[in-house]
Design a protein around this nucleic acid. Structure first.
Lengths: 155, 155
DNA sequence: TTAAATGCAAAGCTTTTGCAATACT
DNA sequence: AGTATTGCAAAAGCTTTGCATTTAA
């Protein structure tokens, strides 16, 4: 059972801290891993494995996509990374413990970061009414964002 | 712009009615289409394209998977079928206008049908607080069902 | 030194597409 | 008859896996 499977989240405040944490788990801080970690922090928002492998579009060195996936999985098992799924596209990855939840637009794919506390009433309602424990961290709420709703009203 | 794209839902009460509706759209009621429609109604719950193509595991004739996908799309464009996505797996298809929403368990994959009205407070909250128009019909709410929560508490 | 990690290639899974053959109207 | 639809095969998009080679500790 891994950290991620236990729901443990290790809030690493920086790439260096994340790599130290990795080594604390007996894992190596390889170049490929450094790249993944740096990309996640540099992006400032959730990114896909593909974007990481591409060095965030040139800002960082590139890496092999399969290795990126393997390293994201490793980092997630250590509680340093989390990922979630939105719509049909590729999975989105972010540093764990970023203290954010996301709302996704199914039309324009926009991601809106929100305070997890602001979803507490929803979680509470679902728990009480259905016994459903919805975290929204792995499968965020998907809908149409206000911009898209307005656009559709005009049309 | 198709019926489905307009958000129009044509509640066909039976396979025969659905096929009539199809013909009303100038489309043909082919054998392959009949199979898809009958499978959707016979299943009584959302099913995957693969399950339809397999004739619901022997209960019905089989069909080509690519044709099933094409026919599901056609039916959806006529407002006769809807589909939604749960977790990582394949898309789930059901007759449109079944008057149900679903809650999904991310652990055991169970689908729980609920009265759409029972999610109104959640929709209302999301709309007011975030301007998010969440229908939950294409991307249902995902969480851990009560059974799985209990199991985890014991462990 | 040596086990962990990488890079490449190939495969898996769901869904889509091209196209000649078929079947509905 | 004429066109919508089918079935098959191939490909696309995301992710995982096998394996020989490299590299961190």
């Amino acid at each position: 059972m891994t950290a991620a499977h236990l729901g443990v989240t290790v809030s690493a405040p920086s790439p260096a801290a994340a790599l130290s944490a990795l080594q604390g788990h007996g894992l190596r801080a390889s170049a490929a891993r450094r790249l993944v970690v740096e990309a996640l922090y540099a992006a400032g928002q959730p990114v896909t494995a593909e974007e990481i492998a591409a060095g965030l579009g040139g800002r960082l060195p590139t890496s092999d996509l399969a290795s990126v996936y393997r390293n994201l999985e490793t980092l997630e098992e250590c509680g340093l990374v989390r990922h979630f799924h939105v719509g049909h596209g590729a999975g989105m990855y972010a540093p764990a413990g970023d203290g954010r939840d996301y709302l996704a637009c199914e039309r324009c794919s926009a991601l809106r970061a929100v305070d997890p506390e602001s979803l507490a009433p929803v979680r509470e309602y679902l728990r009480r009414r259905f016994g459903l424990d919805a975290g929204f961290s792995h499968f965020p709420i998907v809908g149409r964002c206000s911009d898209c709703v307005q656009q559709e009203e005009r049309a």
